[in-house]
Design a protein around this nucleic acid. Structure first.
Lengths: 131, 131
DNA sequence: GTTGTTCTCAACCAAACGGTTGCGAAAGGG
DNA sequence: CCCTTTCGCAACCGTTTGGTTGAGAACAAC
């Protein structure tokens, strides 16, 4: 499976039930049993979902007797938006430059400049086969 | 599997190879073959990954003879950040109020007010069991 | 101590995922 | 008209996911 934290976070939010749990926890903390009442599945299944969210760093848990109240952790959500926004903004920047090139072609019908952008991001698995 | 667009998008970005493809496409458009050179897997596998990204609405493709150049679609990335930010901000808002309550408890050691917040989000699968 | 509540762990199962190989379609170039 | 390039589809296979049930740990209350 995916080992890095970001993959775990995206995997976690890929499930509708888990996204709904996040939505509920954003309103108030809740125990496993409270959350399980909301869904048509066993408490064990909800417990599994919470484990996925916890290992992704999206949820933390404290103790209160037998209860395990769950809290939403905004930090990981922040990391996800940071990742997404980086590439979204880069893509939109590219669109803006494309528009500029198209506007230029109207004036001077020459060759497109082909700016030498290098793929200098991190996060690359490169040639490493990740099964 | 998950049917809604948001689930598809999160599933798509849950894979490191697909996130890397997104990173590369944010720099420049690319064909399947070009992308496949970067990874230790067959072109068919990369083609599958691109299909996942395309069906998630994260990537679109045009035609150029036999080539199928891939373009990154910022729109779906925008939808993802919108979803995440909604709940991140709500969670942080809750933290801010908790801090306020703690500060109040220093002054007047009474009972915690328990503000009547209702879980009024959408996106709920509710009791519908989604396998 | 016994009972009840809350929750996790373990085993199981069908379905989906992520890779492979083989084949063929679509299009351009000799 | 072939031949090559580019790419998708289908079948297959091992692993993972998302649910189930059953057993039991941890703790409170009686």
């Amino acid at each position: 499976m995916a080992v890095d934290q970001l993959s775990r976070a995206f995997v976690a939010l890929a499930d509708p039930t888990r996204r709904d749990i996040v939505a509920r926890l954003s309103v108030r903390d809740a125990t496993v049993g409270e959350l399980a009442e909301s869904y048509a599945m066993s408490m064990q299944a909800v417990s599994k979902h919470l484990k996925v969210l916890e290992e992704a760093g999206l949820v933390s848990r404290s103790r209160d007797a037998q209860r395990r109240p769950c809290h939403l952790e905004p930090r990981m959500l922040d990391l996800m938006t940071t990742w997404i926004e980086r590439y979204r903004q880069q893509a939109e920047e590219r669109f803006r430059r494309l528009d500029a090139v198209l506007a230029t072609m109207d004036d001077e019908p020459g060759d497109t400049p082909e700016h030498p952008d290098h793929p200098e991001q991190s996060d690359r698995p490169e040639q490493s086969g990740q099964s």
